[in-house]
C-alpha cells in the first residue's frame, strides 16, 4: 500500500544524506533515526499503533474496573442467581476471561495485518532489511 511513497526522493532525509536514510552522514553507519521519525511511513505506523493500543487499553481498564466496582459496592446485584448456584458476579468474572482472550486475539490479528508489514517497509527504507 506504500508503493507510491517508496521513492527515496520523497523522503526528507534525501536532501541531507545519501540514498534512503541508511546512514547518518559519514562515520558510524548508524541509521538516521530523526529522519526515520519524520518520514510519513513511520508516522503512519505510529498513528496506527497508538490508535489501537490506547483506546483498547482504556476499554479493557474501564471494563475491568466496572467489574471491580460492582464487586466491591453492589453485592446485591453481583449475588443475584442466574442459573443454579451461579450468580451474576461469577458470570461477570468469566466474561472478563472471554473479553481478555478476545482482545489478545484481535491485537494479534491487527499487528499481523497492519503493523508488521509497515515495520517491514520502514526496515527496507532504512536499509537495514530483515535478518
Amino acid at each position: 500500500m506504500n508503493k507510491s511513497v517508496r521513492t527515496p526522493a520523497s523522503l526528507p532525509s534525501e536532501r541531507a544524506t545519501g540514498p534512503g536514510f541508511a546512514d547518518r552522514g559519514d562515520d558510524i553507519g548508524e541509521p538516521d533515526f530523526e529522519a526515520i521519525q519524520q518520514s510519513p511511513e513511520f508516522k503512519l505506523l505510529r498513528r496506527r499503533l497508538l490508535w489501537f493500543i490506547f483506546p483498547m487499553s482504556a476499554f479493557f481498564l474501564c471494563w475491568y474496573m466496572t467489574f471491580v466496582l460492582f464487586s466491591a459496592y453492589d453485592h446485591d446485584f453481583m449475588s443475584r442467581k442466574l442459573f443454579g448456584a451461579v450468580n451474576t458476579g461469577t458470570v461477570f468474572g468469566l466474561l472478563q476471561f472471554v473479553t481478555t482472550m478476545a482482545i489478545v486475539l484481535t491485537y494479534r490479528r491487527f499487528a499481523h495485518k497492519k503493523l508488521d508489514p509497515q515495520v517491514d517497509t520502514i526496515h527496507e527504507l532504512a536499509g537495514v532489511g530483515k535478518e
Binding site: F60, S71, G93, Q96, F97, T100
Partner: peptide
C-alpha cells in the same frame, strides 16, 4: 469464595498491559 476469584480475574486481565503497551 468469590473474593478469591477476583484475584485470578485481575491476574489474567493484567497480561493485556504487557501485550498492548
Amino acid at each position: 469464595g468469590y473474593d478469591g476469584f477476583l484475584y485470578s480475574v485481575g491476574w489474567l486481565v493484567a497480561w493485556l498491559v504487557a501485550l498492548l503497551l
